[in-house]
Each structure stands twice: as structure tokens, then as C-alpha cells.
Amino acid sequence: MLWNLPFITVVVLTLIGLVTVLLKKNIIKILLGINILNSAANLFLITLGYREGGVAPIFTLAPSELMVLPTPQALVLTSIVIGVATSALVLSFAIVLQKKYGTVDIDKIRRLHG
């Protein structure tokens, strides 16, 4: 069981994020759930690329030639910056909603119903 601990962590994080996104009414909490899901995806990609006993794929004074896979790390680097950008966008939405409606509870923002 213990050798799969990173994957089990990914599953737990995914479930926590899904529950937070689906059940919470506060926009800030929904954003936190989205960030937890983002972290779960990042951890999953990093974990898939790990090689037993590998070092970081940098040749500058590396301790050994056995290295982990570089492509998942590059993809996660991309994913982190996009996560920051979308978090900033959603937080700006929250600020605008708070100024206009006085609340960030999605049930109380009735005008969104059209």
C-alpha cells in the first residue's frame, strides 16, 4: 500500500476538491476547491514522471546520470502559471460581485438567474 502513497494522495485530493466545488456556496471556497483540484493534477503528473532514484533533470553538477522525466515537470510548470492566472481572474470576479451584490454566496445572487 505504501509504495502507492503519492497516487492515493492524488485520489484524496481529487475527492476533497470535487466535494468543495460541488457543495460549497461561497465563491472563495469554490476557488479553493479548484486550486486543490489543480494541485491534485499537478501532483499526478509529477508522480507519473518519477523514476526510482532519479535526480532532477539538470546537468549542472548533477550527482548522477539517472534522471526523472523532464516533460511532466515542464507541463506542470505551465499548469501552475495558468492556475495563478485563473485564480486572479476568479478573485477579481469575487471582488466585483461583492461590490455589486454585497455577497459572494451564489444562492443569494439572484440576478444571475436571468
Partner: peptide, 17 residues
């Protein structure tokens, strides 16, 4: 690009608050 972008996001949020 990232320097300017992330700093201006914080400035914009502060101007909203």
C-alpha cells in the same frame, strides 16, 4: 512578462478595494 503581469494584477485588485 510575468513580472509586469502579476504585479499589475495585485495593483488592479487594490484599486478595486
Amino acid at each position: 512578462e510575468v513580472w509586469g503581469g502579476l504585479t499589475v494584477v495585485i495593483l488592479y485588485m487594490l484599486s478595486g478595494l
